[in-house]
Design a protein around this nucleic acid. Structure first.
Lengths: 192, 192
DNA sequence: CTCATTGCGTGACCTAGATCACAATTTGAA
DNA sequence: TTCAAATTGTGATCTAGGTCACGCAATGAG
């Protein structure tokens, strides 16, 4: 499917736009394609855009002082990603985004998003609901991290996104769950 | 300060409304006051409203199968709170909200918020930015939970909200940090 | 084809924090 | 005032998961 079709269908789940409105909306996005391993956003970069995934799989991650990696989000097709803290506050990136597989994205700048939101009430509505859902999802994950042990969180993750099992290396899954790769390895190589 | 003034100043940080617009906006809120310990939202309730805190301190918390409590949020004046997952999905509450101290709130129903967002572009803008900030804050907390040990998270929390030290019992702070009350107790009764 | 990198499994040991048990203190309602 | 409930401290264990160290397989660039 073409980029505009993918975005159109995604938007249509939340708001209805006329073809003219959508074309205008779409005209603010830039198509970009990346190879596996390429960095889309690096720590310290100025953050000017957010990204809508068309194909492939990205990861947004944080590296701490001891060079341990924590994955905030795997981004699959129709997901949005960026360093939102930096993007909204016009600051430098503290998180990184790169490609787990070859990937295609549509990017839109912060300025253009805000412009669209001003010009098109439905755009504002769409982005409000997108973040609403994101907020609920992150809060749910926070609760899961506090409440559930590693095994339960692992099952939860693969229950929700079975495709991850084949597309992403296990040590990345461990970095998402917040445990060491050794712990995750022992987890599914030991009987329940 | 009066309820309308508190809300007005809060809103003004994000959008500018005329007095007429604000009065209309404000007319959708209901003033409610509660005593310490009172339950505002209980697990299993239909969730119809969200709450803007005028005074006092609320907690939003989850109780798991082993009757352990996890606090998602302490809500101080000018904070918003609800079971947003349930509110947005028109479902029953899975989290509880009650009053740590006597408290006053303004409540607005999901329907009225959506109505306001439809009628007033600036209202939609305001609520979009409120959630944007909330999203960033929860994501930051998630990262802190994965990356930092208890002592660091404790210092982070009290650095951000020093007033919590006097207003809320320590076992609630433990429930926010995601550790047992014993661990927290040992933490600040042992030298660094 | 070949060699270096990346990914993965596993043993040995260590530690932060959980759990259980008990005591002391504070607080609030009757 | 009085007594029960709520709050906090602390010792004695226990355990999930971290860390270190190694070996082995898969893969991908030259």
């Amino acid at each position: 499917m073409k980029a505009d079709e993918i975005l159109k269908q995604h938007i249509a789940k939340t708001v209805s736009l006329t073809d003219e409105q959508f074309d205008y909306f779409f005209s603010h996005f830039k198509y970009q394609s990346f190879r596996k391993g390429q960095v889309i956003l690096g720590e310290g970069d100025k953050v000017e855009s957010e990204y809508f995934v068309l194909s492939g799989c990205l990861k947004a991650f944080f590296i701490n002082d001891e060079v341990k990696m924590y994955i905030l989000q795997f981004s699959m097709p129709t997901w949005w990603t960026s360093d939102y803290s930096a993007l909204y506050n016009n600051a430098r990136a503290t998180i990184n985004i790169d490609c787990i597989t070859d990937a295609e994205v549509l990017s839109i700048s912060n300025n253009d998003r805000e412009k669209l939101c001003r010009e098109l009430h439905q755009a504002e509505h769409f982005f409000r609901w997108r973040t609403n859902k994101g907020y609920v999802a992150v809060q749910k994950r926070l609760l899961s991290l506090m409440n559930n042990d590693t095994r339960k969180r692992y099952e939860e993750l693969l229950g929700m996104y079975p495709e991850l099992y084949n597309t992403v290396p296990k040590h990345l899954i461990a970095a998402y769950l917040g445990v060491s790769r050794e712990t995750l390895s022992r987890l599914y190589n030991s009987s329940r």
